[in-house]
């Protein structure tokens, strides 16, 4: 099985306290810690496990800048066989459809049976996988938490729906699946693993390599645009308890007693 996994470099929500810049219209990006999108790790792990079982190879691809190369290397250290970086000034400011259109061009350069994305990335959209599938006219299933290879042309997938119930589907290959967390336990990547792939060649492809119309992607082609970032005034949030830990606990216990918590 030839598998392509789409991955994205994103600001790590566990490692950052997000602040706006001084103009108040963008994130303060100076000291942000980035990592690979959490969902994409599960997708890469799943691809590696499928290939371990039925043979084939795993390619990881990202649309991003030079710095995005590091997430490709990380996923290659996990066990992905190849990496491809899709990078071009013309890609900047792409909306979901733009990203999907760029990925489509790369898909068409290969012979993939299965394309995996994460269920969602930093923007919380959950859009690229479904768009890519529709552009390719491939079937799609989102929020996949189980994959069972039936034969060369068919797989069974479970989708995690509301309440944690699992919707089982049979789906024809080639197809696109978006992967939900919890489908597997992504393997740990150590420094040694990263070192091993440090000098592996990762091809970089732009508009002309992919044969894309530059006007259809990037900021120019975007139908949906982000104007700014902001933090709204939400009125009364939580009453913040302050003081020493001892004082806080005293106040909290009073409140818990009043509310039936103790």
């Amino acid at each position: 099985m030839e598998i392509l996994v789409c991955v994205k470099r994103v600001p790590d929500t566990a490692e950052n306290e997000f602040e706006l810049n001084s103009a108040g219209n963008d994130l303060d990006r100076d000291d942000l810690v980035y990592s690979v999108n959490e969902w994409d790790n599960y997708a890469v792990e799943e691809a590696i496990q499928i290939v371990d079982n039925v043979g084939g190879s795993v390619t990881v691809v990202t649309v991003g800048d030079d710095e995005s190369e590091e997430v490709l290397r990380r996923e290659m250290a996990m066990g992905a066989n190849n990496g491809v970086l899709l990078s071009d000034a013309a890609f900047e400011g792409s909306d979901g459809k733009g990203i999907a259109a760029i990925l489509k061009a790369e898909v068409e350069k290969g012979q993939y049976d299965l394309i995996l994305t994460g269920a969602q990335a930093d923007e919380g959209a959950g859009q690229v996988g479904g768009m890519l599938a529709a552009m390719l006219d491939y079937p799609y299933a989102s929020l996949v938490n189980k994959i069972e290879v039936v034969n060369d042309t068919t797989i069974k997938v479970g989708r995690e729906i509301e309440g944690g119930n699992q919707e089982m589907n049979e789906i024809q290959l080639p197809c696109v699946l978006s992967i939900q967390t919890g489908i597997n336990e992504p393997r740990y990547v150590g420094i040694r693993g990263i070192r091993k792939v440090a000098s592996v060649d990762i091809p970089v492809k732009g508009v002309s390599d992919l044969g894309i119309d530059a006007a259809a992607v990037g900021k120019a082609g975007a139908k949906t645009r982000r104007l700014d970032y902001f933090v709204p005034d939400l009125g009364d949030g939580a009453e913040m308890l302050e003081g020493s830990t001892e004082e806080i606990i005293e106040k909290l216990i009073e409140k818990l007693k009043a509310k039936g918590g103790l």
Partner: peptide, 15 residues
């Protein structure tokens, strides 16, 4: 934006 909407909507927008 629920598990069905996430399954349907992005592809619908393309089509």
């Amino acid at each position: 934006h629920d598990t069905f909407g996430m399954d349907l909507a992005p592809g619908l927008a393309v089509k």
